[in-house]
Write a protein that binds this DNA or RNA. Structure first.
Lengths: 192, 192
DNA sequence: TGTACATCAGTGAACGCGCGTTCACTGATGTAC
DNA sequence: TGTACATCAGTGAACGCGCGTTCACTGATGTAC
C-alpha cells in the first residue's frame, strides 16, 4: 500500500475533529463539506470515501464533540468545593462562552439537532443521558433517589440555557450577569 | 395608485409573519427568500422593495415573533395558581414543544442569533430584557429586590434550556420528563 | 535484483440545484387636461 | 366625458456563487515473479 497502516483511519479522525469544531462554532447549516476538507488539508472529492453523507459526518462529529468534552481533564477541587459545583462553574465561565468550537456540543447544536434526522437525534439523546447521569451522581446525598434524574435535568437545563443566552446577547455586562445568574440557579437546584 | 392605501404595508407585514413562522420552525439558515415570498403569495423579485437584505428580515421577523408571543392572551388563573406558575407551565407544555413556529423566538433562534450581526443581537437583547423583566415582576414578594433580575434570568434559562432539550431528544417519554423536570426546577427557583 | 502489475487514498472537474441579489419590465389604477 | 400620461407594487429572467454529491483519474507504494 502507498500509505502506512492506519493512515486512512487517521485522516477520517482528522475530518471528524475539524468538523466537530466548525459545526459548534458556525452551526451545521453554515459549514460545507469543501470547507471542512480544506481545513483537514484535503480536497472535497475524497469526502465520500470516508462518509456516506454530510448527515453521517454531523452525527459522528457531534458524538466526538461530546466525548472530547467528557474526557477533558478536570482541575483539582478547591477546598470546600464539590465536584458538581466545579462542573457548574466550569461550564458557565466566560472562557467556555467565548470558545464554542471546543465547548459543549449540546449547547451549540441542540436547536439544529431537533431538525435533523432520527439517527442524529438518537445519538444526541444517548449523549444527553450520559451527561444527566453524571450530574445525578454528583448530587448531594440528601437528594432522594427518585428525584435525582429530574433534578439533574433541571440543572443541565439552566446550564445549557444560560450559556446560550450569554452567547447571544450583545451587551457584555449582561452576558457576564447571565453566566453568574446561571451558576446561582444551578447551585440552588443542586441543594438537597 | 393601482393599490389601495396601506396595501404595501400589509404585504410587508404578511412577509414578516410568514418569515417569523418559517425561521422558528426550520431555522434562519434553512429558509430562503424565495420560499418565504412564495408562502406570502408573491414572487421572490419583489422582496427588495420591502427589505434591504435577508438580515433585515431576520431581525424584523424575530422581533415580530417575540411581540406576538408576548401579546398572546393568557388563560384565566386557576385557583391557587399564580401568574408566574401559569407562565412556566404554559411555556413547558407539550403543545409549545410541538409548535415551534408559533412559539418562543428565543428558544428557536438563540443559537443562530449568537452568530448573526450586531443589530440582530441587539434586538434580541432588548426582547430578552423584556421577558426577564416580566418574570421578575411576577416573583413572590419575599424575593429581595437585588436578587429579582438574577432569579428571573435563572428561571428563563431553565425554561429555554428544557424546551430546547425536549425538542431535540428522540425519546418521547424522555421529552415529556424533561418538560416536567423543567417545570419543577423553575418553580423551585421562583420560591422566595 | 529488476520489472510488471495491483492497490487505493486522494484529486479535481463536473452534475443539478438553490441561494441572495439585481434589474428591466408589466399592468392596473389615479391624475391632468 | 375621453384620452394621455405618471405612478409603483409586483414579476420573472438573469447574475455569480457555493452547496452536496459523483466519478474517472493519478501516482506512490507494496507484491508477484
Amino acid at each position: 500500500m502507498r500509505f502506512e497502516k492506519g493512515h486512512k483511519a487517521a485522516t477520517r479522525q482528522r475530518i471528524i475533529e475539524v468538523a466537530s469544531e466548525r459545526f459548534r462554532k458556525d452551526g451545521v447549516a453554515a459549514v460545507g463539506i469543501a470547507g471542512v476538507m480544506a481545513d483537514a488539508g484535503l480536497t472535497h472529492g475524497g469526502f465520500y470515501a470516508h462518509f456516506g453523507s454530510k448527515e453521517d459526518l454531523v452525527r459522528e462529529a457531534m458524538v466526538a464533540a461530546f466525548e472530547s468534552t467528557n474526557a477533558r481533564p478536570q482541575s483539582a477541587l478547591k477546598p470546600g468545593e464539590n465536584a458538581l459545583e466545579r462542573r457548574i462553574r466550569g461550564y458557565l465561565r466566560p472562557a467556555h462562552r467565548d470558545t464554542p468550537e471546543r465547548g459543549c456540543a449540546a449547547a451549540a447544536l441542540v436547536a439544529e439537532v431537533a431538525r435533523h434526522d432520527p439517527a442524529t437525534r438518537e445519538a444526541f439523546t444517548g449523549e444527553l443521558e450520559g451527561i444527566v447521569g453524571r450530574i445525578a451522581e454528583q448530587l448531594p446525598d440528601g437528594v432522594a433517589e427518585a428525584a435525582r434524574k429530574s433534578t439533574a435535568i433541571g440543572i443541565f437545563g439552566v446550564m445549557l440555557g444560560a450559556l446560550q443566552l450569554s452567547r447571544a446577547v450583545a451587551d457584555p455586562a449582561l452576558s457576564d450577569a447571565i453566566l453568574e445568574s446561571g451558576i446561582q440557579a444551578a447551585l440552588k437546584l443542586a441543594e438537597a
